[in-house]
């Protein structure tokens, strides 16, 4: 028979060892996950990119381990925390604040995520977030088989061809050229990532403004090619327009 007090000590010893083992395994797991955190320079800041594959329960441990590894790099530099498309909940953010940000006295320049819900959460908690970047819906040539109504936005990496009208209040952002078979009343921005050798073609041009690359042209109501078929392009660094005949 084992005396009661010895059994009691053994029990605590067993629990203690198990906790140590669990903590050790957890640390090993967190170290695995910390490898999924990237650091990237962004001007005067460092962007800490947190992969979506890290489970929420390992989030702050993995970030802490990653920061430990890059201690010299991170020291004192404002950070941008980029959670990619992860949907964060309020508890995740509280965990990050108490276990990472406050614990390490980190300066956070910006909380970033491509997830709409996470961005809303950041904003509602008063954190500085990034303006929504363009989310390109695809590549190559996009055919839109209908008119675009007010409020509709198309963001496309490539050329866009609209087989209909682009109504006032609708927007098209294309890295390539834009062709509107019907009436163009909304905003068309061709070469929105900086390409100059692109164009906008409209079956009936009725827009107030066109944009190509970083150039903007305002169109007055008395402009003679309003209501006509035109091609808008960049020539010698400025936006030029030519009427399409036939």
């Amino acid at each position: 028979m084992v005396p009661d007090d010895v059994a009691y000590v053994n029990m605590w010893h067993y629990i203690y060892n198990n906790i140590r083992l669990v903590n050790y395994l957890r640390k090993v797991k967190s170290m695995d996950y910390s490898g999924k955190i990237q650091f990237k320079g962004e001007g005067e800041h460092i962007r800490l990119i947190v992969s979506e594959s890290i489970p929420a329960e390992f989030l702050h441990e993995a970030i802490n381990l990653a920061i430990d590894k890059a201690r010299k790099l991170v020291g004192g530099v404002p950070l941008i925390l980029d959670f990619k498309s992860r949907q964060l909940v309020q508890d995740d953010i509280f965990g990050l604040l108490s276990n990472v940000v406050c614990k390490r006295h980190l300066k956070i320049k910006e909380w970033r995520s491509s997830n709409e819900g996470s961005r809303e959460l950041f904003s509602s908690m008063g954190f500085k977030t990034q303006e929504r970047g363009r989310l390109y819906q695809g590549r190559g040539t996009l055919f839109v088989h209908r008119s675009l109504r007010s409020g509709k936005t198309i963001e496309h990496d490539g050329d866009v061809i609209v087989l209909g009208n682009v109504n006032e209040g609708a927007e098209i952002y294309a890295t390539g050229s834009i062709c509107v078979w019907g009436r163009l009343c909304g905003l068309a921005h061709a070469g929105c990532e900086g390409k100059d050798d692109v164009f906008i073609v409209a079956g009936c041009f009725d827009a107030n403004q066109v944009r190509i690359s970083d150039k903007i042209s305002y169109v007055g109501p008395d402009t003679h090619w309003i209501g006509k078929s035109v091609k808008v392009y960049v020539a010698q660094g400025v936006i030029a327009v030519s009427e399409l005949s036939g």
């Binding site: 109504r149 007010s150 409020g151 509709k152 109504n167 006032e168 209040g169």
Partner: peptide, 12 residues
């Protein structure tokens, strides 16, 4: 008309 266009888009 612009607002109606937006509403029609939402209804669709």
């Amino acid at each position: 008309v612009r607002d109606a266009d937006r509403i029609i888009g939402l209804l669709e």
